[in-house]
Design a protein around this nucleic acid. Sequence first.
RNA 1: GGAGCAGUCCGGGUGAACGCCGGCCACUGCAGGACGGGGUGGCGGGAGGAAAGUCCGGGCACCGGAGGGCAGGGUGCUGGCUAACGGCCAGUCGGCGUGAGCUGCAGGACAGUGCCACAGAGAACAGACCGCCCGCGAAAGCGGGUAAGGGUGAAACGGUGCGGUAAGAGCGCACCGCGCUCCUGGUGACAGGGGCGGCACGGCAAACCCCACCCGGUGCAAGAGCCAAUAGGGGAGCGCUCCUCCGCGAGGAGGGGCAUGGGCGGCCCGCCCACGUCUCCCGGGUACGCUCGCUGGAGGGUGUCGGCAACGGCACCCCUGGAUGAAUGUUCGCCACCGGGGAAACCCGGGGACAAGACCCGGCUUACAGGGCUGCUCCAGCA
Length: 128
Amino acid sequence: MRPAQEGGGRFSFPKEVRLRRRSEFLKVQERGAKLSADCLLVLALPNGRADALTRLGLTVSTKVGNAVVRNRLRRRLRELFRTRRHGLPRGLDMVIIARTSAAEADFGRLSRAFEKVAADLSKRYPSP
RNA sequence: GGAGCAGUCCGGGUGAACGCCGGCCACUGCAGGACGGGGUGGCGGGAGGAAAGUCCGGGCACCGGAGGGCAGGGUGCUGGCUAACGGCCAGUCGGCGUGAGCUGCAGGACAGUGCCACAGAGAACAGACCGCCCGCGAAAGCGGGUAAGGGUGAAACGGUGCGGUAAGAGCGCACCGCGCUCCUGGUGACAGGGGCGGCACGGCAAACCCCACCCGGUGCAAGAGCCAAUAGGGGAGCGCUCCUCCGCGAGGAGGGGCAUGGGCGGCCCGCCCACGUCUCCCGGGUACGCUCGCUGGAGGGUGUCGGCAACGGCACCCCUGGAUGAAUGUUCGCCACCGGGGAAACCCGGGGACAAGACCCGGCUUACAGGGCUGCUCCAGCA
């Protein structure tokens, strides 16, 4: 049995790269480094995992909009993470919190915000 | 053709690249009695008409278990449909519209209690302010009659007409209304007709209340399994009863005394358990874990039969969401479609309108860009 190629194919998005427990979210939110860009607020914390996977959690509260707006936002943010996760520092847990202004943002604006966060993260956690 | 009424349906399609969720099949190979878990590939699926609000009704699950009642809650014209409903269908009555049609918190006010402000002379076995008429008086005015007219009010003790009268008045008569009664039709709400009564019995029940019918509580974070018994440890259970009045009683009003306790929907009747029991919590004892519940169902379609219809019976066919920090997407094209410009070819812009399951159904209510179909009404025109 060969080991899973770390977290699936290059652009895949399997379950092991998502935060799925409340305790994981709380840990990042309490102790993580805080970065912001436009309508996004990002918290990041090295997770110390042996496989050095970088994982993602999303928080979009009801203040941002109704269920349709929130779903769309979550999917777009997840898509950005999916296509760019191999350019991010390794072994990080990150939680993206959407601000209210994210409701009106189109995909281009979200991309620019995400790129800025990715650049900041690379500076803060340079790859060895 | 114009204006309108009702019903019903849709609410994007398609291509490529990269992804997500669960299902089936094949190969591989971990483990190996089986179930099972991993990898690769293939096939075919993957939010709504309101999925929403969470306003009703059920299924299902647990709360120890039956009955009668009290309290509490709900519904409220009639008949039917349904698993059930506060829903639906068909009617009745009232209101609106020329009409197709629309609309209604539509039981009871001689069971009882209560309320009817302000204005007004007078407001519930009412009432004389102005006016009208008669009498007295020189006049001002005083006494009497009068509810037809004016004024107030949400409401003034029937309406119209004729007769009658000093002026008036159901005072008399006709019709209408109202009440009682009888007949006919209807399952019924009710309708039609005859007779009698001179008219008495104002409104509010979304005031208490009365009547009829219905209702236990909590919700899939229900609940079950992996997880199993026995013994032992610590903590908790908070009221009971008597007297007076109405009542079988619960209950309501007032007063007094004392500490067996608990369970059965809040209480009573009734029933049951018990001196170290009963129930619950903590804890030994690890879990916001995994599996099940979890999706084939009061399911959908077609035909046929019964029924005005809602709906029901029968036959055949179809079924491929089940997540859980929560899948059905992102990007780039093309086309429907919409707006603007143009004679046209075409060009520019938009192309998510409202809104996404969270145990599952039946309804109601609310939101909604744009569009299709069917039937009907009124008006105009042609023949």
